[in-house]
Amino acid sequence: MKVKFYSPQREYHEKKEEFNSAISKVIESGNFILGDEVSNLEESIKKYTGAKYAIGVASGTDALVIASDILGFKDGKEVITSPFTFLASASCLSKHNAKPVFVDVDEESFSLDANKIEEKITDKTVGILPIHLFSQMCNMDKIMSIAKFHNLRVLEDAAEAFGMRWKGTGSLYKHSGTVGDMGVFSFFPTKTLGAYGDAGMIVTNDDELGKLAKMFRVHGASKKYHYDYIGYNSRLDTIQAAVLSIKLKYIDNAIEKRAAVAKWYEERLSDCEYVRFPKIKGEQKGVYYVFNILAEKRDELAAYLKENEIGNSIYYPIPLHLQKCFSYLGYKEGDFPIAEKLSKEVIALPIYPEITEDEVDFVCNTIKKFYKR
């Protein structure tokens, strides 16, 4: 049996007529840049997340770069974030000549350890960039309390966190990206809400920040050919917005199916002593964008899965502080031992709403066979 890590064709064939109709409508209209589908999607995202503003941009990476610029994460200022994440979570700071300041992660959740933030705050610190990934949000109660006390801005990297909601000690669940000053989503095809190409979005509840984001995505223009800022050319493609609007209608069902798949994995691998699962911590509603395990002999297991035609991925094999591009920051091996340890053990298994129980059985049985060799 061959099990792909991700298979967009299944969803497409299930809803082929809807996708084809939406795409054809855009092509026939000829309105390819910031067309009606973009504004319609933005309204739908606002309604779904509870954000006051939703601004579509070309990618999740662009969303981070633009939001970092708007929040003043630049010109030698320091921003605290995690080393155990995708490049864009920190490169968005370096692009503006800000300094990423890393703190280690929590070993059980893989999330930025909020208890280690304050020791890294200096007179140059202007913000915190928590990353919601590995199926859960960071401890936003603690992070927002620290930010308020030290007068820091918070940019939530919710690129992998669409659908996740945090309650903490509050009375209401808040969608990822809407707790801090600004938040960003990526709609890269593999994401929980994924386009058929690159796409992203910025959300905020702040009037001024929302106004700036709308301007910054169109070269910094307040109106056509009137430029108040040096901005960006980063607009959500109208065809991608049309695709995303179709998928958004089914997002809750997709999230439920992902949770069911995660439960299959946990049930079938719970008796495997060589495998451990991350824990979702705090009062929140997680979303299984990926399903990660911590596995002994991880690299050998990855190779064995590949030999048996089972897709897998490693998020992330090298923490950011040890990446060549960040060598100028002066970090060394051993500075963040938990992130470094996790990077040698973590492996992601196939998970998407259309995967079958038989396929999950095959993946789990193959993992057990590997450890019985």
Score class of each variant (00 low, 15 high):
residue 3 V to H: 04
residue 3 V to K: 08
residue 8 P to S: 09
residue 10 R to K: 14
residue 11 E to V: 14
residue 12 Y to K: 11
residue 15 K to S: 15
residue 27 I to N: 10
residue 28 E to Q: 11
residue 32 F to V: 07
residue 33 I to N: 07
residue 38 V to Q: 03
residue 43 E to D: 14
residue 43 E to I: 13
residue 44 S to Y: 05
residue 45 I to H: 00
residue 45 I to L: 01
residue 46 K to T: 01
residue 48 Y to K: 13
residue 48 Y to H: 10
residue 49 T to W: 02
residue 57 V to A: 04
residue 59 S to G: 14
residue 59 S to Y: 02
residue 59 S to M: 07
residue 59 S to C: 11
residue 60 G to P: 00
residue 61 T to Q: 13
residue 62 D to P: 02
residue 65 V to L: 14
residue 67 A to V: 11
residue 70 I to Q: 03
residue 71 L to F: 02
residue 75 D to W: 01
residue 78 E to P: 00
residue 83 P to I: 10
residue 87 L to V: 15
residue 89 S to C: 14
residue 89 S to A: 15
residue 89 S to D: 12
residue 95 K to E: 09
residue 97 N to E: 12
residue 97 N to K: 10
residue 98 A to Q: 08
residue 101 V to P: 01
residue 103 V to C: 09
residue 103 V to G: 06
residue 104 D to N: 10
residue 106 D to I: 10
residue 107 E to L: 12
residue 108 E to A: 12
residue 110 F to D: 09
residue 111 S to Y: 11
residue 113 D to Y: 14
residue 118 E to H: 04
residue 119 E to Y: 08
residue 125 T to K: 06
residue 125 T to Y: 02
residue 125 T to P: 06
residue 127 G to P: 04
residue 129 L to C: 11
residue 132 H to K: 05
residue 138 C to I: 09
residue 138 C to H: 04
residue 139 N to K: 13
residue 143 I to Q: 02
residue 145 S to I: 02
residue 145 S to C: 04
residue 152 L to G: 01
residue 156 E to T: 04
residue 160 E to Q: 13
residue 166 W to N: 04
residue 168 G to S: 03
residue 171 S to F: 05
residue 174 K to P: 00
residue 176 S to C: 02
residue 178 T to K: 01
residue 181 D to I: 07
residue 184 V to N: 00
residue 185 F to K: 01
residue 187 F to Q: 03
residue 188 F to N: 12
residue 188 F to H: 06
residue 195 A to I: 06
residue 200 G to K: 02
residue 202 I to V: 07
residue 202 I to F: 03
residue 203 V to T: 01
residue 206 D to A: 11
residue 211 K to T: 05
residue 218 V to T: 14
residue 218 V to N: 13
residue 224 K to E: 14
residue 226 H to Q: 13
residue 227 Y to R: 11
residue 228 D to G: 06
residue 228 D to K: 08
residue 231 G to I: 02
residue 234 S to M: 05
residue 240 Q to S: 12
residue 244 L to H: 10
residue 250 Y to L: 07
residue 253 N to R: 08
residue 254 A to S: 14
residue 257 K to P: 01
residue 259 A to K: 15
residue 260 A to L: 14
residue 268 R to L: 09
residue 270 S to W: 05
residue 277 F to G: 00
residue 280 I to K: 03
residue 284 Q to D: 12
residue 286 G to H: 08
residue 287 V to A: 04
residue 290 V to N: 12
residue 290 V to H: 12
residue 291 F to H: 09
residue 291 F to Q: 00
residue 292 N to W: 13
residue 293 I to N: 05
residue 296 E to N: 11
residue 299 D to K: 13
residue 302 A to F: 12
residue 303 A to G: 12
residue 304 Y to C: 13
residue 305 L to W: 02
residue 306 K to C: 12
residue 309 E to G: 07
residue 309 E to D: 15
residue 311 G to C: 14
residue 315 Y to E: 14
residue 317 P to V: 08
residue 317 P to K: 05
residue 318 I to V: 15
residue 318 I to Q: 15
residue 318 I to C: 15
residue 323 Q to Y: 12
residue 324 K to Q: 15
residue 329 L to G: 05
residue 330 G to S: 09
residue 332 K to W: 10
residue 332 K to I: 14
residue 335 D to I: 08
residue 339 A to E: 00
residue 340 E to G: 06
residue 346 V to N: 07
residue 350 P to E: 00
residue 357 E to K: 13
residue 359 E to I: 02
residue 359 E to V: 10
residue 362 F to A: 07
residue 363 V to I: 02
residue 372 K to M: 10
residue 372 K to R: 14
